[in-house]
Structure formats: structure tokens, C-alpha cells
Amino acid sequence: MARVTLQTIADRLGVSRATVSYAFSRPDQLSDGLRRRIMEVADELGYAGPNPTARSLRLGRAGALGLIFSETLAYAFADPYAIGFFQGLATAAEDAGVGLLILPLPHGDRRSETVRDAVVDSFCVMSLPDGHPALAEVFARKLPVVVVDEPYVPGHPFLGIDEPAAAAAAARHVL
């Protein structure tokens, strides 16, 4: 069976491909009757709707933030700090209308294709060790990046504790 596309439906109805696309993405641009006919033919032909991957390519964005961290998923959902951080990041992602793609790279996992193949618009890198190959892959993608905790990479946004200042404050307090 041949793959059903927007053009297949358009040809069957004698309308343009754009008209069929509007039935799925901008239904307010069509009359109720035309949209109903398009949806009936789509259903009859087994067309579920536009391909999200193709849409992402056309728009030039994935609608997702990639979170890279150096632990297992099980750890991430058990550690109180990680849970709080993930909740905050997830809230910000939701508020921005984007998804969150979690990319764990547990200790010893040196794969970089996880990063290279991620369909995301930006990265949040959390606690990767210095020199991890995935970090080089992140920067090679030329997407917005913020690094949390480690490693500190000059010239890139960083969120972490100023340990020397914290130690000095603790020493002043004790003294």
C-alpha cells in the first residue's frame, strides 16, 4: 500500500495540498463542510495526520530542551536534589511551551551519539565530568547551552555554587 500524504488527500478531493494542511493545522481557515470532507477522506485513507518530524524540519525547531546529566534515570528520580532540579526545569519548559528530553549519561558512559542524535533546540548540561566527549558534541551542535554544577566552561552560561566564596563565608561564620 502506498504511503498516504497530504497530496494524496488533495488529489482525491480536487483541492490544493495547502487546503488539506489547513484542515489539520489551521481549521479556522476552512468552512466546516470542507474540513469535514477532508477529515473523512483522510480517515478513509488511513491518514493519521501530518508527520511531526517533517513539521519540525519545516519549522526549523524541535520544540524540546535536552537535559544531559551524569547519572541513571533511577538515580535522577530518587535523589532529592535531582528531583527538585528536574521539577524546576520541567516547570520552566512547560511555561515556555517546550518539551523536555532527558538524556542520561551515567558515570562511565562515554557515548556522544546520544547528544548528536537528540532532536532538541537547546541543551542543559548537568554535572558532566571535565573532558566528557558528550560536552564537545553539545558545543559542536551550536545550540544554546547552559551548564549546571560542572564543568565550568568559560564563555558559556553557567549555574553553580561559588565554592571559594561559600567556604570563606563558612569560615567567617565559624570564626
Rank of each mutant, 00 (worst) to 15 (best):
P133G: 15
A18S: 14
L30K: 10
V15R: 06
V146C: 04
A23C: 00
V153S: 02
E40C: 04
H107M: 14
D32P: 10
L103H: 01
V138A: 04
V98E: 01
R111I: 02
V148P: 04
P129I: 04
S25K: 10
L13R: 06
S21P: 00
A62Y: 11
T114E: 11
L159D: 13
H156Y: 09
G49T: 00
Y22G: 11
A140G: 02
G108A: 10
P50S: 01
Q87N: 13
R55W: 03
N51T: 03
E137M: 15
A42D: 01
P154S: 13
Q87I: 13
L65N: 03
H173R: 15
D28P: 05
I161E: 07
P164A: 04
L175H: 13
L175R: 12
D162K: 06
V138G: 00
Y47V: 00
F24D: 03
V15A: 05
D121W: 02
H156W: 09
R141H: 08
H107V: 13
A171Y: 07
R58L: 07
R58A: 13
C124W: 11
V15M: 05
A10W: 11
Y152W: 01
F85Q: 14
L175M: 06
G33K: 12
L135T: 00
A48E: 08
P104W: 12
G33P: 05
A62P: 02
D130Y: 06
A118D: 08
V120Q: 09
A90H: 15
L30I: 10
A18N: 08
L143E: 07
L30D: 11
L89S: 11
P106R: 07
N51V: 01
Y152S: 05
L65D: 02
D117V: 13
A166M: 15
L128V: 03
R55T: 12
A10R: 00
V138P: 06
A62W: 12
M1R: 09
P80C: 08
R12Y: 06
D28F: 01
S31C: 09
S56Q: 00
L6T: 01
G108E: 10
G46C: 04
G63M: 07
L159K: 09
A74V: 08
A93H: 04
P164W: 01
T5Y: 03
E94A: 09
A140H: 06
D109E: 04
L103N: 03
H156I: 09
F69A: 14
I38A: 05
A134L: 05
A92E: 03
V145N: 11
R26V: 03
A74N: 11
G108H: 10
A90M: 10
L159G: 14
E113C: 10
I161M: 11
D32N: 12
A92G: 02
I161N: 11
